[in-house]
Amino acid sequence: MITKRIIPCLDVKDGRVVKGVSFVDLRDAGDPVELAALYDEAGADELVFLDISASHEGRKTMVEVVRQAAGVLSIPFTVGGGIGDLEDMFQILRAGADKVSINTAALQQPELVENAASRFGSQCIVVAIDALYDPSEKDWYVYTHGGRRRTEWKVLDWAQQAVDRGAGEILLTSMDQDGRKNGYDLALTRTVSDRVRVPVIASGGAGTKDHFVKVFTQTRAEAALAASIFHYREVGIEDLKAELKQKGVHVR
């Protein structure tokens, strides 16, 4: 039986991990490759590197980080952030990433998803969706540019559209829950994962082990992503997996 996946996310700026990381046993807490290797050893199922560099040089540095990560990791990893065209994707995939994640660029030119899927295969194209609930419309809307700009797209419509165009996976982030540590947005995750027939990664809001149990038992999410709770060791990967197993969630 296929297992549920636990995915730590590393924010990388100009080749360095940002969001203070408190690993005492790391020689260099800012080295994304060293941190990634530690997560691999701890039993993470997959990793996401989110490049938040604003500059061209920062992006080039990211390709080097990907190359080094591919040299040491024995688990798959996705790279997202600032990927705008097929050439960017090619560079990242050739450097050894297993998947690329696109967000704003996909909304600006939805045919990019199709072109990417036909060139590289659906299995390596992740469409990342930033979702915020609109209480007056009673629905979630898609935001771009790191959550700064609202689009006309309702989340479910865009998710379906992305899948129809060839996305192999949806990385679904709840902006309402992100950073609050009081749990994944179960309603949002359920809505999308019930509908689309590709794996959905739940993201935003993880604070405790129980939040992972809930998202895996109450929605059809196949993976759950978190950043700071892993980096700050509020939740350990081994502990989390033991808890999930005990609650009947199938994990590696």
Binding site: M1, D45, G168, E169, R197, A223
Partner: peptide, 12 residues
């Protein structure tokens, strides 16, 4: 079938 395709993830 009515299940997620691709088959993606860790399996036994």
């Amino acid at each position: 079938g009515d299940y997620n395709i691709p088959h993606m993830g860790w399996n036994e």
